[in-house]
Design a binder for these strands. Sequence first.
DNA 1: GACATAGTTCTACAGATGTCGCAGAATCTT
DNA 2: AAGATTCTGCGACATCTGTAGAACTATGTC
Lengths: 126, 126
Amino acid sequence: MRLTESEWQIMNALWQRHPATARDLNDGLPEEVRWAHTTIKTLLSRLVAKGAVSESKRGNASVYEPIITRDEARRSSLRTFLNQAFDGAVEPLLSFLAKEKSLTPKQRQQLARILADEDARKRGRK
Amino acid sequence: MRLTESEWQIMNALWQRHPATARDLNDGLPEEVRWAHTTIKTLLSRLVAKGAVSESKRGNASVYEPIITRDEARRSSLRTFLNQAFDGAVEPLLSFLAKEKSLTPKQRQQLARILADEDARKRGRK
DNA sequence: GACATAGTTCTACAGATGTCGCAGAATCTT
DNA sequence: AAGATTCTGCGACATCTGTAGAACTATGTC
């Protein structure tokens, strides 16, 4: 499932609050991205067409629900990102992240901790 | 600097081998993505227009050089990716990566090692 | 010099995306 | 029930992307 930039906006709002109407969503969107009502509707229609969102009627109005999960969307987005920028492999991204100045020691430690925890969890579960 | 999917292909080939002519590049591209010669030229022109690539003449033919570095491109791509899928923060991506089943213990360790090394380097440098 | 070859610029075009406006149907308010 | 308000469906349109053919020009080859 491939989402465009504005579709991500919509989905992010929808994952956060759903079921939701077009209006609900627009209110929930960040200040800077306030589209015309019809714009949201168009985006939502396209998402429904794609099968990323479900639409049902409550009286006259449409109510939307996400079908794909955020993690699913993240996964495919990550895939694409890796393919384009890192030869499709995770390792290069990992080193890149580790190298990045923008990653603070704190974040670095967080990452290390996450890994350790995850590792422990994996081990313990077996 | 925002690169499209096919632009990434070109850039990846160009970072790998440059200076290069349109023909050089096409040869260097993965089998599946062999465009018509003119397609490459079009893409290259667009990249030149964007300021991502420089063009110079050698006789009749054009020779291209990347202007932006791969890391720069990666950085902005990462930025966009984070903004869309992870609220713009690195941490959520880190946890996501750590959580992912697809990340093997080996990769997890690699990442841990990278972090440790980087940390040491940082510390030692100060 | 005449032709084949390879490079160049221009133009084109369909499909994807970002953004709506309009006009009519449904619903709410007095 | 009339007017105001809110939705909806549909069409529109400018840009961006992907992909390439056409036509012309410079080069290489006998």
